[in-house]
């Protein structure tokens, strides 16, 4: 019983101030992550860096409002599927290079006009590759965090149930 009580306690998250600030910040963090992914080929950043920032927005929600709040926005199943889809898109992009261009895997087969330099569309297949990697990294990092926190909660719940001293302390309180 103490285990399930602990789960509920943890699910309520942090104080109102932290939650309010997180509510304000999650949008800009997500936007910054998307910017890093999209402009990865012209500014510092890219699929990996941007993906980490996007994942950090969901991790922040989980930390402040509890696991259920994080998972209600980005479920474990969806994250797992997006993780595979992201890498699959990246591989298909590589294969299209072999098929469409002069025969090399990952060859950039979308030509860019000189007027488009330094814009989002100046990288040919690179922004698409960055998007795919961003999707993969964001999903994978969020999944790693969720799974590790689930293990920790489960471990505490089991400890709480099996440790007689803690059980006695819980009962007294």
């Amino acid at each position: 019983m103490s285990g399930s009580r602990k789960l509920r306690d943890r699910g309520t998250g942090m104080g109102m101030t932290v939650k309010t600030v997180t509510r304000w910040l999650k949008g800009p963090i997500l936007l910054f992550g998307i910017y890093l992914v999209l402009y990865g080929h012209v500014t510092p950043g890219g699929g990996f860096g941007g993906g980490v920032v996007i994942a950090s927005a969901f991790i922040l929600i989980t930390l402040t409002s509890g696991e259920l709040a994080g998972l209600s926005i980005f479920s474990k199943g969806a994250a797992s599927r997006l993780d595979s889809v992201g890498l699959l898109i990246f591989l298909i992009l590589g294969w299209l290079g072999t098929w469409w261009a002069s025969g090399y895997f990952f060859e950039n087969f979308i030509s860019t006009s000189e007027t488009a330099y330094h814009s989002v569309l100046s990288g040919g297949t690179m922004p698409i590759g960055n998007l795919a990697l961003g999707l993969k990294v964001a999903s994978a990092l969020f999944l790693v965090f969720t799974v590790l926190s689930a293990f920790q909660i489960a471990g505490r719940a089991i400890d709480g149930l099996t440790d007689p001293e803690e059980q006695q302390r819980e009962d007294k309180s």
């Binding site: 797992s80 599927r81 595979s84 890498l87 699959l88 591989l91 590589g94 294969w95 072999t98 895997f105 990952f106």
Partner: peptide, 15 residues
């Protein structure tokens, strides 16, 4: 490249 791409792609497809 297919020696790496095929098993990697299939690993994702299985998931």
């Amino acid at each position: 490249p297919l020696f790496v791409a095929i098993p990697l792609g299939m690993s994702l497809l299985v998931q």
